[in-house]
Design a protein around this nucleic acid. Structure first.
Lengths: 333, 333
DNA sequence: CTGTTAGCGCCTTCAC
DNA sequence: GTGAAGGCGCTAACAG
C-alpha cells in the first residue's frame, strides 16, 4: 500500500504538500497540485483512515447500536439512519445488542474505540442506567433512539407512544369493548411503559373500570404467554400487545385457546408485522414512523456536533393507526 | 484519556513493560505486574485500539456486509455471524448494502480502511464482479455468504439451492401439478439461478413439458408482478417464488386476481416469512439454515486466517422443506 | 526480567 | 506557496 511518502517522492514535493492537497487545507499552486494528483493516481494511494483518525482524533463516522435489527421497526430505523448518514458524508458503523446489556456495552466500547464522532443508541431492554452515566463522560455525543431516558440530558427521538395507545383504546371502546387484556411486556423499556400509561389514559377517558382490565407485564415471554392463555378463559373481548414480539406471544395464545380474530376476540398491536396485507387476519396496528425516526436521530447528532452546548432536545414523532379486520367487530351491547 | 505513558509513570516501570502485561506477550514478575495492573486501575487506562491496530496492522475484528439485513434469512445469518465471532473474541463490524452496488463498495472500503482482518460478504444483486477481482488483491481474506461466485477462489458457504428446488417441485408434481409459474427473479443473483436450475431439474424428473411452464425472471418487481397477474388468467395450478421479496410479489398478484391459496392455486416459496405459523394461509417454505450459514462463514474465515494458503472451500448446507397448507390440495386428474 | 528506541501513516505548527 | 519536524499511542526488535 502506497503512503504519502511514496506520493510525495514521486511528485517531487514534501509530504506536507500532499497532505494539504488531499484535505484542501491550504492553497497550493495549480501545477504542483496537478503533479500530486497524478502521483496519487499512479501509486494508487489511499488515505489511511486509521492514522488520520488517530492524528485528528475524529473520523467522520458515527455508530448505531440497535437492540434487534431484525425487528421490522428497527430495520426501518437502521435504514433511515443509513440514508441520512450517507447524505451527510458520514460513515456508519452498525452493531446489534440483541437486547443484551453485556453485548450492548461491548458494542458501544468497540465503536467508541474506533473513534466514532457520535453514537445513536436504541438501548437494550436490560441496559443499566450506569451505561448512560458513563456515556455522558465520553466526548462523542450520544443520541437516544426509540428507547428514551430523560434522567440524563441526551438528545433523543421517539414516538408519541402514550397518545397513540390512548387513541387505540378509544377506537376499541367506541366499538363497545369494555374489558381488555393488555400484553404490556418489559417494564424496563420506556416506550412500553409509555404505552401502558396511554392505556390507562384510554380506559379512564372511556369511564371504564380500571380494575376490570388485565395488564400483563414482565420480561419473560413464556410467562406472559401462560398468563394470557389463562386469562383468555375469562370474558375479555379485546387483546392489545405493545410490540411485535408481544404480538407473537398474544397471537399464539389466542390461537392455542382455539379463538379466532376478530370473530371471538378483537386484537391490535404496536409495531406489527411486515407485509401484513398479505395475510389473514389483517391486524390493526399502530405504526411508528421508523425511517423518519432514524433520519431525525442523525439530524440531532449533526446538530449536536455543530453546537455542543445547545440545550438537549426530545423529538416525538406521530404514529399512525392502521385499521384492519382484527378490530372490525362490534361488541353487542 | 490516560495513555500507557501515564500508567508506566505511575507504576514506575517502562511503557514496554506495560505493553507486555497488557498483551501477555512476555513474562513479567508478579510484583511488577501487580503494580502495573493497579496503575491501570487507578488511571482508568484503556487501550487505544486504533494505535494498536495501526502498529500491528491487524485488529481482531471482522466485517460483515449484507445486502438486506431486514430480510428474515439475512437477519438470521447476521445473528449466526455475531455469535460465532463473539465466541472467538472477534469484534464484528456490520454494514448494509441494500442490494446496491455503490453502497456495497463504499461499505467494504470503509471496513477495509478500518483494518478488519477479514470480510464476510453477501453480495448485492447488482454487485460487479470487478469488485471481487479487486478484493482478491486485498490482504484481508473474503468469505462469500449465500451469494456465491465460483470464478474466483474465495471460500464460500451457501445452501443446496438447486436440489432443494428440485425436491419442492417433486412435492408438487406428486400432488398432480403439471403447470407451474415460477417467479424466478433477478438472474444476476447466483442463488436464484441455482433455484431456477433446480426447477428445470424437477420438471424434467417428472417428465413434464418444459414449454408448459412459465418462468418470470428479471429485476423489476413491478414488471414481475404485472407478468404474473396476466399469467394467472391462464391455467397454472401452482406458483413458486424463489425468495421472500418475490413471494410478496406473487402473493400480491394472487390476491389481486381474486384467487385464494390453496383453494384456487397452490403456492410455495423459498426463505419465507417470520412467524408464519401465526397467519393464514400457512405457506410451504424452503428454509435456509441461515444461522448456521453465518456461523460457518466465520469458521471458514478463521480457518483461512490460520492457513492463508489452504485450498478454497465451498460449503453447501441443507435446506428443509416445511410443508404447510398452501400446497395442501391435490389436483384432480 | 526489564528498558530504550524506532517507527506505523498522518496532520499541523513553525519556519522559510 | 512550500518544507521540516514533532508527535498521536502503541508494539516489537534490540540491548542489557
Amino acid at each position: 500500500m502506497a503512503t504519502m511518502v511514496d506520493v510525495a517522492k514521486l511528485a517531487g514535493v514534501s509530504i506536507s504538500t500532499v497532505s494539504h492537497v488531499l484535505n484542501g487545507t491550504r492553497n497550493v499552486e495549480k501545477a504542483t497540485r496537478r503533479k500530486v494528483l497524478s502521483a496519487i493516481e499512479q501509486t494508487g494511494y489511499r488515505q489511511d483512515t486509521l492514522a488520520r483518525a488517530m492524528r485528528r482524533s475524529k473520523s467522520d463516522s458515527i455508530g448505531l447500536v440497535v437492540s434487534a435489527a431484525g425487528e421490522p421497526a428497527f430495520a426501518e430505523m437502521v435504514h433511515g439512519v443509513e440514508q441520512a448518514a450517507a447524505e451527510r458524508g458520514l460513515t456508519l458503523l452498525l452493531a446489534n445488542s440483541g437486547e443484551d446489556a453485556v453485548r450492548e456495552r461491548r458494542a458501544i466500547t468497540t465503536l467508541l474505540e474506533r473513534r466514532i464522532d457520535g453514537l445513536i443508541l436504541a438501548r437494550a431492554a436490560g441496559s443499566e442506567s450506569s451505561l448512560l452515566a458513563n456515556l455522558q463522560q465520553e466526548k462523542a455525543p450520544v443520541i437516544l433512539l426509540d428507547r428514551l431516558f430523560s434522567d440524563f440530558p441526551f438528545d433523543q427521538v421517539g414516538a408519541d407512544n402514550r397518545d397513540s395507545m390512548r387513541r387505540l383504546v378509544q377506537h376499541l371502546t367506541e366499538r363497545g369493548h369494555t374489558r381488555f387484556a393488555l400484553v404490556a411486556g418489559d417494564d424496563r423499556v420506556p416506550a412500553l411503559v409509555e404505552r401502558l400509561n396511554g392505556f390507562h389514559d384510554g380506559i379512564r377517558d372511556a369511564g371504564l373500570d380500571a380494575a376490570g382490565q388485565l395488564i400483563l407485564a414482565g420480561q419473560d415471554e413464556n410467562e406472559l404467554h401462560r398468563q394470557l392463555a389463562d386469562a383468555l378463559a375469562g370474558d375479555y373481548s379485546a387483546v392489545i400487545s405493545s410490540s411485535t414480539p408481544l404480538a407473537v406471544v398474544a397471537l399464539r395464545a389466542i390461537a392455542e385457546a382455539g379463538l379466532s380474530t376478530p370473530g371471538d376476540i378483537a386484537f391490535a398491536t404496536f409495531d406489527g408485522f411486515s407485509n401484513s396485507d398479505l395475510f389473514r387476519p389483517g391486524i390493526t396496528t399502530v405504526r411508528q414512523p421508523a425511517f423518519e425516526m432514524g433520519a431525525s436521530a442523525v439530524g440531532l447528532l449533526t446538530d449536536r456536533l455543530a453546537h455542543p452546548d445547545a440545550h438537549p432536545r426530545t423529538l416525538r414523532l406521530h404514529q399512525t393507526l392502521e385499521l384492519r379486520e382484527s378490530t372490525e367487530s362490534y361488541v353487542a351491547t
